[in-house]
């Protein structure tokens, strides 16, 4: 069995009466890109702070490749972080920032310089490498923020909402970088509010709230876990009675009529493969169907169902 790159077991942290993390457990396989979804106050930042070593007095354990993460500071050479804040020096250039932040890790000087130049090319900042960062746009700064997290070639990269406050183009660019990093074998934990980003980028999703992991899995697995169904909207020329006779509810075949009126009906399917059979029954009853819309279950719906609130709450 392949060794987990990160194993968090029963992590607990409280601020007075408030519980930030309660028996939080999570693990990550090498090369896995995990999206950590949670509303504000779910405990994401507390988790990142514990992993960074800036938050103490917690219970539980964190192991990196089987070793206690906090027992040996050298292990940090193998982990990178991209904080939510633009955590770099705006009065320095992009290259100087990469050399400074990289210098905190045990990397030979020549290798560091080579790596810094390589990363500047990856984040498309080579032409402006020697300009003070304060002259950069928001998107460029975000890309530099990500590059700094990668400068020491970490095996595990933690990204804390790396796409906050940037335009679509910059967001796409950063998501591409994250995917590329994952593709090259770096494990990634990626916290975000943006469901679409997780759907596009992550191989596995963890939903957390009130300091706990509620569920983890691929998008399809999560949908199955919550029993989320596909919604089909049918419109045409038919009466509500005729439609109900054609597809009696409950149908017993995983089809559920959510609402029906003259010329319009809404159905829920546990399995989208049952949709052609439903159409055949409508045609057999000589009902005229003009339009059919299939709405796939979304991560947002899963999230809502699990946490009882939207990510913006």
């Amino acid at each position: 069995m392949q060794q987990k790159i990160l194993e968090i077991k029963n992590l607990g942290k409280s601020y007075g009466e408030t519980t930030a993390l309660a028996n939080f457990s999570l693990d990550l396989a090498p090369g896995e890109v995990l999206g950590l979804l949670g509303p504000n106050g779910a405990g994401k930042t507390t988790l990142i702070s514990i992993l960074s070593g800036t938050l103490r007095d917690f219970s539980g354990s964190v192991a990196f490749r089987g070793q206690d993460l906090f027992a040996d500071r050298r292990l940090k050479n193998r982990i990178g972080i991209v904080p939510q804040e633009m955590a770099f020096y705006e009065d320095l250039s992009a290259l100087e920032n990469l050399l400074f932040w990289g210098g905190l890790y045990d990397i030979p000087e020549k290798e560091l310089k080579r790596r810094a130049l390589e990363l500047l090319a990856v984040v498309e900042l080579s032409t402006r490498a020697r300009e003070p960062v304060k002259k950069f746009s928001g998107g460029m700064k975000r890309r530099l923020n990500v590059a700094i997290g990668l400068v020491h070639r970490p095996e595990l990269l933690l990204l804390d909402e790396p796409t906050v406050g940037i335009d679509v183009q910059a967001k796409v660019s950063i998501l591409d970088i994250i995917r590329e990093v994952g593709r090259k074998g770096t494990s990634v934990v990626f916290t975000t509010h943006q469901l679409a980003e997780v759907e596009q980028t992550c191989s596995r999703i963890a939903i957390m709230d009130q300091g706990k992991i509620l569920a983890t899995g691929t998008l399809a697995e999560l949908i199955r876990i919550v029993g989320e169904k596909e919604i089909v909207e049918v419109s045409g020329e038919f009466s509500a009675t005729a439609f109900s006779e054609a597809i009696p509810a409950p149908s017993g075949a995983g089809i559920e009529i959510l609402s029906v009126s003259d010329d319009f009906a809404m159905l829920a399917f546990a399995d989208s493969q049952d949709i052609p059979a439903m159409m055949q029954r409508l045609f057999a009853h000589r009902l005229h169907v003009a339009d059919l819309k299939i709405k796939s279950p979304s991560l947002e719906a899963v999230f809502l169902k699990m946490t009882g609130r939207s990510l913006r709450d």
Binding site: L51, R73, I81, M86, L104, I148
Partner: peptide, 14 residues
Amino acid sequence: ADGKTRRMMFSPLS
């Protein structure tokens, strides 16, 4: 306040 400390503490720096 601006996250640099957290980033530094994530490195082997004590």
